[in-house]
Simulated assay, not measured.
Amino acid sequence: MQLFYYKDEVGNFGDDLNPWLWPKLLPQLIDDDASELLVGIGTLLNHRLPEDKILHIVGSGVGYGHLPQVTDKWKIHALRGPYSAQALNLDPQLAVTDSALLLRNVMEPQHLESGDVGFMPHYLSCRSADWQNIAQACGLRFISPEWSVERVFAEMAQCRLLLTEAMHGAIVADALRLPWKALVLGEHVNRHKWQDWLSTVNMTYQPLQLPSYFHHASGLVAGAKDELKRQLQSLGLGKHWYPPKPRNSGGKRRAQVCRSLTDIARQVQGELSQEQQQNHLLTRLNQSLEQLHN
């Protein structure tokens, strides 16, 4: 069977876990046969799923796009969480957890008690502001979700705590027993998918909000076009236009963001799910893998 996952043109850690992890877990099953698809890590259960393929659902969930029509071609081994099961009107017992937890089958939990405080924004935040420079100014270890999976793992291994806006940053940190804390840097965070996963580990989504900050490295022409669009929309024109990028934040806002981030890194207590619950969920996911072989 082939892997079905979202392929970002630059890279996104959560999605890119798929080609890294599944061939290690299922080396005899992952091949070029496109008649069956493995739908694993990611918010993939939407209208974009092929309707003419056999779909093996292992730990994926809803959250983006339109809800799909569940058909007899769906072989549901595990859903990401109870929100996904409810949204699709499926048996709540199908809710297990996000299948990124399966990396515990191929990696040992690891982090440094005396390590750095890591900082991983959402990949869209990385494209709207210079968060790497801010993190470095605050003394944090910047970890981009656009980097390779191996590099992200290597950077996380040097941390004692991970501040993350990226959900799979938290899921992987939790799997590897690295304490983490959720942050919100922008409006693109999908709270439903976070809670979908967190419900399976008996936790709730309680992120810390940083002041909004934008710094687009666009040229003068693109910046002028965005400003013109803002002016016209303020006059009631172009209501159906794609919204322009926000104006770049000034130095005062940048300093405010850096102070907030520094305070969080100094004061926050990291979170972890209970080991017993994680082991229980890992057992259930491994049972799903056994089903794939049958």
Rank of each mutant, 00 (worst) to 15 (best):
A175C: 10
D226M: 09
R247G: 04
P207S: 01
V189A: 05
E227K: 12
K245A: 09
L208W: 14
A175I: 05
F214M: 04
K239G: 08
T200G: 06
H188R: 10
H215G: 03
G223Y: 09
I171H: 07
R230W: 05
D226W: 10
T200I: 07
E187R: 13
T200N: 10
R177K: 15
V201K: 08
R230V: 00
P243T: 01
R191M: 14
E187L: 09
L208C: 08
P207C: 02
L198N: 03
L198C: 10
L237C: 10
P243L: 05
Q195A: 05
L176D: 01
Y242R: 14
Y213L: 11
W180Q: 00
W194T: 00
H240Q: 08
G219S: 01
L198K: 08
K193C: 06
R230P: 05
L208H: 12
T200P: 06
L220K: 14
D196T: 03
V184P: 11
K181P: 01
D226A: 13
A170D: 03
Q233I: 06
Q195V: 02
L237K: 09
N190H: 10
K245V: 04
Q233C: 08
G236I: 04
I171Q: 08
V184R: 14
L210N: 06
L176A: 04
S212R: 13
K193T: 00
A222F: 14
K225F: 07
G238N: 08
V221A: 14
H192I: 13
A224K: 13
P244L: 00
L178A: 05
D174P: 11
A182M: 03
S199A: 13
Y205E: 01
G236V: 01
